[in-house]
Amino acid sequence: MSGPGNKQCDTGDGYSFAYLDEQTKRMIRRTLLKALSIPGYQVPFGGREMPLAYGWGTGGIQVTASIIGPDDRLKVIDQGADDTTNAVSIRRFFEIVSNVATTEQTAEATIIQTRHRIPEAPLQEGQILVYQVPQPDPLHKIDPRENETRKMHAYAEYGAMQVTLYEDIARFGRIARTYDYPAMVNARHLMSPSPIPKFDNPKMENNPAIQLFGAGREKRIYAVPPYTSVRSLDFDDHPFEVQTWKGCCALCSSTVSYLDEVVTDDRGGRMFVCSDTDYCNKRQADRALTTETGGIVAPDEGAKL
């Protein structure tokens, strides 16, 4: 496709800038504005087939393709990491079809497309977080018939969801939902935050950045505008709480980030490391800098131990 520095609309292979044709972008852009106007409401849109498979981020990709421009700097993460294969693949896609600059640093990015995580570093005004969403309707598990769930959303009949959560409490003594934990947006629409761990739910509330959600296969787009209330469902006697870990990250010693468990050998060896690779690398670099006088060499970007 197009060579570096080429900012023509045509990518040289007959495809448009950012892959989508202008009519499709216009349709998605109109959808995005409606989504921001009605926080948490799932707007149906004429989702297109993309050159990546459904379930692999086509909703997020269509949203990103409709908003991205030559001045943007794109970051793509999957499981919090920039170097997971699908994140690499999606980043490459945008490098090829839009020639846009990319980055692994959260603070530098104007658009961050994500699957399953919200970065640990706080987001700022002017940044846009694009979520890849497999199943946009939090009520889908309660009733798979879209006709029915649409009515529940229309009349804010969310009792069934509360009952489902309460059944967990009756059975397990706690709400047994650990990711894709439903949240109420602007005190009106029940929303799936996508399969992020519930650890990330509080980050959605009153965030200065724009949060856009794209579900390609289900053909829905929704949004959380900046400075918007996002309340995770809970009960007075069982308030919402997030995951915590006993230890800290084995690489950067963070005690406040979401940790992945890594199997280190076949004898039960385990270690915990940050899922957000940019956050972890930055902390390791900072630490190396402060202890440089002590003769410790900064770890390389492969984060080897």
Partner: peptide, 10 residues
Amino acid sequence: LPHYVDFQAE
């Protein structure tokens, strides 16, 4: 695709 963040939560 990797699901280790969700799997960790579970």
